[in-house]
Amino acid sequence: MQTQLEAGREISRVQSAVAARRAQATLFKRPRPGEDAIRVYLLLCGVLSIFTTLGIIFVLGEESLRFFTSGVTDAVEFLTSIKWQPQAGEFGILPLLESTLMTSFMAMLVAIPLGLGSAIYLAEYAPSGVRTAMKPILEVLAGIPTVVYGYFALTFMTPALRGIFGQDAVQIYNTAAAGIVMGIMILPTISSMAEDALSSVPRSLREASYGLGATRFETIVKVVLPAALSGILAAFIIGISRAVGETMIVALAAGAGSNWSFPPNFFVAAETMTGHIARISGGDLSYDSVDYNSLFAIGLMLFFITLGLNLLSQWVSKRFREVYQ
Protein backbone atom coordinates (compact mmCIF):
# COMPACT_ATOMS: atom_id res chain seq x y z
CA MET A 1 0.00 0.00 0.00
CA GLN A 2 2.71 2.30 1.10
CA THR A 3 4.79 1.79 -2.05
CA GLN A 4 1.77 2.34 -4.25
CA LEU A 5 1.16 5.62 -2.63
CA GLU A 6 4.81 6.55 -3.08
CA ALA A 7 4.62 5.68 -6.72
CA GLY A 8 1.47 7.68 -7.12
CA ARG A 9 3.11 10.73 -5.64
CA GLU A 10 6.13 10.28 -7.84
CA ILE A 11 3.99 10.14 -10.95
CA SER A 12 2.07 13.25 -10.04
CA ARG A 13 5.34 15.07 -9.33
CA VAL A 14 6.74 14.19 -12.75
CA GLN A 15 3.49 15.19 -14.40
CA SER A 16 3.45 18.56 -12.76
CA ALA A 17 7.12 19.15 -13.75
CA VAL A 18 6.29 18.37 -17.39
CA ALA A 19 3.26 20.64 -17.18
CA ALA A 20 5.39 23.42 -15.77
CA ARG A 21 7.91 23.05 -18.59
CA ARG A 22 5.17 23.02 -21.17
CA ALA A 23 3.81 26.24 -19.75
CA GLN A 24 7.20 27.88 -20.23
CA ALA A 25 7.98 26.35 -23.62
CA THR A 26 7.46 28.55 -26.65
CA LEU A 27 7.78 27.82 -30.33
CA PHE A 28 10.32 30.59 -30.78
CA LYS A 29 13.52 29.90 -32.65
CA ARG A 30 16.30 28.65 -30.49
CA PRO A 31 19.94 29.36 -31.28
CA ARG A 32 21.72 26.16 -32.36
CA PRO A 33 25.41 27.05 -32.70
CA GLY A 34 26.40 23.47 -33.52
CA GLU A 35 24.02 23.34 -36.46
CA ASP A 36 25.26 26.67 -37.76
CA ALA A 37 28.91 25.66 -37.52
CA ILE A 38 28.24 22.48 -39.46
CA ARG A 39 26.34 24.44 -42.06
CA VAL A 40 29.28 26.78 -42.53
CA TYR A 41 31.69 23.84 -42.81
CA LEU A 42 29.54 22.18 -45.47
CA LEU A 43 29.25 25.44 -47.40
CA LEU A 44 33.04 25.76 -47.34
CA CYS A 45 33.37 22.26 -48.75
CA GLY A 46 31.11 23.26 -51.61
CA VAL A 47 32.87 26.55 -52.19
CA LEU A 48 36.28 24.83 -52.24
CA SER A 49 35.53 23.64 -55.77
CA ILE A 50 35.19 27.23 -56.88
CA PHE A 51 38.50 28.07 -55.24
CA THR A 52 40.07 25.16 -57.07
CA THR A 53 38.91 26.57 -60.38
CA LEU A 54 40.00 30.07 -59.43
CA GLY A 55 43.33 28.61 -58.26
CA ILE A 56 43.87 26.91 -61.58
CA ILE A 57 43.02 30.04 -63.54
CA PHE A 58 45.12 32.26 -61.29
CA VAL A 59 48.18 30.01 -61.30
CA LEU A 60 48.08 29.39 -65.03
CA GLY A 61 47.35 33.04 -65.74
CA GLU A 62 49.99 34.48 -63.45
CA GLU A 63 52.81 32.27 -64.70
CA SER A 64 51.73 32.73 -68.31
CA LEU A 65 51.78 36.48 -67.80
CA ARG A 66 55.35 36.24 -66.51
CA PHE A 67 56.19 34.14 -69.52
CA PHE A 68 54.78 36.64 -72.00
CA THR A 69 56.33 39.63 -70.24
CA SER A 70 59.73 38.00 -69.78
CA GLY A 71 60.96 39.52 -73.00
CA VAL A 72 61.90 36.14 -74.44
CA THR A 73 58.71 35.82 -76.37
CA ASP A 74 55.26 37.33 -76.71
CA ALA A 75 51.73 36.06 -77.18
CA VAL A 76 51.82 36.57 -80.95
CA GLU A 77 54.97 34.52 -81.43
CA PHE A 78 53.62 31.92 -79.01
CA LEU A 79 50.47 31.46 -81.04
CA THR A 80 51.90 31.71 -84.53
CA SER A 81 55.48 30.43 -84.60
CA ILE A 82 56.03 26.90 -85.79
CA LYS A 83 59.22 26.47 -83.78
CA TRP A 84 59.39 25.30 -80.18
CA GLN A 85 63.04 25.27 -79.18
CA PRO A 86 63.41 26.56 -75.63
CA GLN A 87 67.24 26.36 -75.83
CA ALA A 88 67.16 28.75 -78.77
CA GLY A 89 64.54 30.97 -77.19
CA GLU A 90 61.91 29.87 -79.70
CA PHE A 91 58.50 29.41 -78.13
CA GLY A 92 55.86 28.74 -80.77
CA ILE A 93 53.15 26.40 -79.55
CA LEU A 94 51.98 25.29 -83.00
CA PRO A 95 54.20 22.19 -83.29
CA LEU A 96 53.05 20.98 -79.86
CA LEU A 97 49.45 21.79 -80.70
CA GLU A 98 49.76 20.01 -84.03
CA SER A 99 50.98 16.82 -82.36
CA THR A 100 48.17 17.04 -79.82
CA LEU A 101 45.65 17.38 -82.63
CA MET A 102 47.28 14.49 -84.51
CA THR A 103 47.18 12.06 -81.60
CA SER A 104 43.63 13.17 -80.77
CA PHE A 105 42.55 12.73 -84.39
CA MET A 106 44.06 9.26 -84.49
CA ALA A 107 42.37 8.43 -81.18
CA MET A 108 38.97 9.53 -82.45
CA LEU A 109 39.49 7.59 -85.66
CA VAL A 110 39.61 4.50 -83.46
CA ALA A 111 37.27 5.47 -80.65
CA ILE A 112 34.32 6.93 -82.57
CA PRO A 113 33.49 3.98 -84.86
CA LEU A 114 34.33 1.33 -82.28
CA GLY A 115 32.73 3.19 -79.38
CA LEU A 116 29.54 3.97 -81.26
CA GLY A 117 29.45 0.52 -82.84
CA SER A 118 29.77 -1.25 -79.52
CA ALA A 119 27.21 1.11 -77.97
CA ILE A 120 24.72 0.28 -80.72
CA TYR A 121 25.43 -3.41 -80.33
CA LEU A 122 24.97 -3.29 -76.56
CA ALA A 123 21.87 -1.09 -76.61
CA GLU A 124 20.07 -2.58 -79.61
CA TYR A 125 21.32 -6.03 -80.47
CA ALA A 126 22.88 -7.76 -77.49
CA PRO A 127 20.74 -10.19 -75.53
CA SER A 128 20.65 -9.15 -71.90
CA GLY A 129 23.04 -11.95 -70.91
CA VAL A 130 25.69 -10.70 -73.31
CA ARG A 131 25.15 -7.16 -72.12
CA THR A 132 25.67 -7.98 -68.45
CA ALA A 133 28.78 -9.97 -69.38
CA MET A 134 30.27 -7.29 -71.64
CA LYS A 135 29.70 -4.15 -69.62
CA PRO A 136 32.23 -5.10 -66.91
CA ILE A 137 34.82 -5.70 -69.63
CA LEU A 138 34.38 -2.16 -70.87
CA GLU A 139 34.57 -0.95 -67.27
CA VAL A 140 37.88 -2.77 -66.83
CA LEU A 141 39.15 -1.13 -69.98
CA ALA A 142 38.08 2.25 -68.58
CA GLY A 143 39.72 1.60 -65.22
CA ILE A 144 43.21 0.76 -66.48
CA PRO A 145 45.69 3.51 -65.57
CA THR A 146 46.92 5.53 -68.50
CA VAL A 147 50.56 4.74 -67.77
CA VAL A 148 49.71 1.10 -68.48
CA TYR A 149 48.24 2.15 -71.82
CA GLY A 150 51.47 4.02 -72.44
CA TYR A 151 53.40 0.82 -71.85
CA PHE A 152 51.04 -0.98 -74.21
CA ALA A 153 51.52 1.64 -76.92
CA LEU A 154 55.29 1.52 -76.70
CA THR A 155 55.81 -2.22 -76.35
CA PHE A 156 52.91 -3.59 -78.41
CA MET A 157 51.38 -1.06 -80.79
CA THR A 158 54.63 0.45 -82.03
CA PRO A 159 56.25 -2.91 -82.83
CA ALA A 160 52.99 -3.97 -84.48
CA LEU A 161 52.92 -0.85 -86.68
CA ARG A 162 56.59 -1.31 -87.51
CA GLY A 163 55.87 -4.89 -88.46
CA ILE A 164 53.06 -3.83 -90.78
CA PHE A 165 54.48 -0.67 -92.35
CA GLY A 166 58.20 -1.42 -92.11
CA GLN A 167 60.94 -0.49 -89.66
CA ASP A 168 62.10 2.37 -91.84
CA ALA A 169 58.70 3.93 -92.28
CA VAL A 170 57.75 3.95 -88.62
CA GLN A 171 59.96 5.48 -85.97
CA ILE A 172 60.25 3.97 -82.50
CA TYR A 173 58.34 6.92 -81.13
CA ASN A 174 55.38 8.02 -83.22
CA THR A 175 51.99 9.66 -82.91
CA ALA A 176 50.13 6.82 -84.64
CA ALA A 177 50.76 4.19 -81.97
CA ALA A 178 50.05 6.69 -79.19
CA GLY A 179 46.84 7.82 -80.92
CA ILE A 180 45.54 4.33 -81.61
CA VAL A 181 46.06 3.21 -78.02
CA MET A 182 44.53 6.45 -76.78
CA GLY A 183 41.51 5.56 -78.91
CA ILE A 184 41.23 2.22 -77.15
CA MET A 185 41.47 4.04 -73.84
CA ILE A 186 38.67 6.45 -74.77
CA LEU A 187 36.47 3.79 -76.38
CA PRO A 188 34.68 2.81 -73.13
CA THR A 189 33.87 6.44 -72.32
CA ILE A 190 32.26 7.02 -75.70
CA SER A 191 30.61 3.61 -75.65
CA SER A 192 28.97 4.06 -72.28
CA MET A 193 27.85 7.66 -72.87
CA ALA A 194 26.48 6.77 -76.30
CA GLU A 195 24.74 3.69 -74.92
CA ASP A 196 23.05 5.84 -72.28
CA ALA A 197 21.87 8.18 -75.00
CA LEU A 198 20.55 5.30 -77.13
CA SER A 199 18.80 3.64 -74.20
CA SER A 200 17.04 6.85 -73.30
CA VAL A 201 15.25 6.91 -76.66
CA PRO A 202 11.71 5.85 -75.79
CA ARG A 203 10.62 2.37 -76.73
CA SER A 204 7.51 3.78 -78.35
CA LEU A 205 9.59 5.32 -81.15
CA ARG A 206 11.20 1.99 -81.93
CA GLU A 207 7.80 0.32 -81.95
CA ALA A 208 6.40 2.97 -84.27
CA SER A 209 9.19 2.27 -86.71
CA TYR A 210 8.86 -1.51 -86.53
CA GLY A 211 5.10 -1.11 -86.87
CA LEU A 212 5.67 0.56 -90.24
CA GLY A 213 7.69 -2.37 -91.47
CA ALA A 214 11.20 -1.11 -90.81
CA THR A 215 14.04 -3.57 -90.22
CA ARG A 216 16.07 -3.33 -87.05
CA PHE A 217 18.93 -1.64 -88.86
CA GLU A 218 16.59 0.92 -90.44
CA THR A 219 15.00 1.62 -87.07
CA ILE A 220 18.41 2.21 -85.52
CA VAL A 221 19.80 4.40 -88.27
CA LYS A 222 16.70 6.41 -89.10
CA VAL A 223 14.94 6.72 -85.76
CA VAL A 224 17.09 5.80 -82.77
CA LEU A 225 20.38 7.40 -83.81
CA PRO A 226 18.83 10.74 -84.84
CA ALA A 227 16.81 10.83 -81.61
CA ALA A 228 19.94 10.14 -79.56
CA LEU A 229 22.14 12.44 -81.61
CA SER A 230 22.69 15.08 -78.96
CA GLY A 231 23.92 12.56 -76.40
CA ILE A 232 26.12 10.86 -78.96
CA LEU A 233 27.71 14.11 -80.11
CA ALA A 234 28.29 15.07 -76.49
CA ALA A 235 30.06 11.73 -76.01
CA PHE A 236 32.31 12.39 -79.01
CA ILE A 237 33.24 15.84 -77.73
CA ILE A 238 34.05 14.51 -74.26
CA GLY A 239 36.19 11.89 -76.00
CA ILE A 240 38.14 14.58 -77.87
CA SER A 241 38.58 16.53 -74.66
CA ARG A 242 40.02 13.49 -72.91
CA ALA A 243 42.35 12.80 -75.83
CA VAL A 244 43.68 16.37 -75.79
CA GLY A 245 44.39 16.21 -72.05
CA GLU A 246 45.83 12.70 -72.00
CA THR A 247 49.44 12.68 -70.91
CA MET A 248 51.04 9.35 -70.11
CA ILE A 249 50.42 7.58 -73.41
CA VAL A 250 51.97 10.38 -75.41
CA ALA A 251 54.75 10.92 -72.88
CA LEU A 252 55.83 7.31 -73.32
CA ALA A 253 55.03 6.56 -76.94
CA ALA A 254 54.85 9.75 -79.01
CA GLY A 255 58.41 10.91 -78.49
CA ALA A 256 60.36 13.85 -77.14
CA GLY A 257 61.17 17.09 -78.91
CA SER A 258 58.70 19.18 -80.81
CA ASN A 259 58.24 18.47 -84.46
CA TRP A 260 56.29 20.55 -86.93
CA SER A 261 55.47 18.32 -89.84
CA PHE A 262 53.44 19.47 -92.78
CA PRO A 263 51.69 17.54 -94.19
CA PRO A 264 51.31 15.65 -90.90
CA ASN A 265 53.30 12.43 -90.69
CA PHE A 266 51.88 10.05 -88.13
CA PHE A 267 54.90 7.76 -88.15
CA VAL A 268 57.49 10.17 -86.79
CA ALA A 269 58.20 11.26 -83.24
CA ALA A 270 56.48 14.42 -82.11
CA GLU A 271 55.88 15.89 -78.69
CA THR A 272 52.40 16.97 -77.66
CA MET A 273 51.52 19.78 -75.26
CA THR A 274 50.96 17.37 -72.38
CA GLY A 275 53.99 15.28 -73.29
CA HIS A 276 56.17 18.36 -73.20
CA ILE A 277 54.87 19.47 -69.79
CA ALA A 278 55.51 15.99 -68.40
CA ARG A 279 59.01 15.70 -69.82
CA ILE A 280 60.22 19.15 -68.78
CA SER A 281 58.70 19.08 -65.30
CA GLY A 282 60.03 15.56 -64.78
CA GLY A 283 63.58 16.80 -65.23
CA ASP A 284 65.53 19.33 -63.18
CA LEU A 285 63.50 22.46 -63.39
CA SER A 286 64.34 25.65 -61.59
CA TYR A 287 61.51 27.93 -60.53
CA ASP A 288 61.06 31.20 -62.37
CA SER A 289 63.03 30.06 -65.37
CA VAL A 290 61.48 30.69 -68.76
CA ASP A 291 61.09 26.93 -69.16
CA TYR A 292 59.11 26.78 -65.94
CA ASN A 293 56.85 29.65 -66.97
CA SER A 294 56.36 28.23 -70.43
CA LEU A 295 54.82 25.08 -69.00
CA PHE A 296 52.05 27.16 -67.49
CA ALA A 297 51.41 28.92 -70.78
CA ILE A 298 50.99 25.53 -72.43
CA GLY A 299 48.81 24.49 -69.50
CA LEU A 300 46.64 27.57 -69.97
CA MET A 301 46.15 26.70 -73.64
CA LEU A 302 45.29 23.13 -72.67
CA PHE A 303 42.86 24.34 -70.03
CA PHE A 304 41.04 26.60 -72.47
CA ILE A 305 40.77 23.88 -75.11
CA THR A 306 39.43 21.22 -72.75
CA LEU A 307 37.13 23.64 -70.93
CA GLY A 308 35.78 24.84 -74.27
CA LEU A 309 35.15 21.26 -75.39
CA ASN A 310 33.45 20.37 -72.10
CA LEU A 311 31.19 23.40 -72.25
CA LEU A 312 30.42 22.63 -75.90
CA SER A 313 29.49 19.09 -74.97
CA GLN A 314 27.12 20.31 -72.25
CA TRP A 315 25.60 22.84 -74.61
CA VAL A 316 25.10 20.25 -77.36
CA SER A 317 23.44 17.77 -75.07
CA LYS A 318 21.11 20.44 -73.73
CA ARG A 319 20.44 22.31 -76.93
CA PHE A 320 19.62 19.39 -79.19
CA ARG A 321 17.89 17.18 -76.70
CA GLU A 322 14.47 16.13 -77.98
CA VAL A 323 11.74 16.52 -75.43
CA TYR A 324 9.46 13.51 -75.32
CA GLN A 325 6.26 13.53 -73.38
Partner: peptide, 10 residues
Protein backbone atom coordinates in the same frame (compact mmCIF):
# COMPACT_ATOMS: atom_id res chain seq x y z
CA UNK B 1 36.74 17.35 -67.10
CA UNK B 2 39.98 19.24 -66.44
CA UNK B 3 43.00 17.16 -67.56
CA UNK B 4 44.92 15.69 -64.65
CA UNK B 5 48.18 17.27 -65.72
CA UNK B 6 46.66 20.71 -65.02
CA UNK B 7 46.05 19.66 -61.44
CA UNK B 8 49.74 18.80 -61.44
CA UNK B 9 50.59 22.37 -62.45
CA UNK B 10 48.26 23.69 -59.74
Amino acid sequence: GVPSIIYGLL
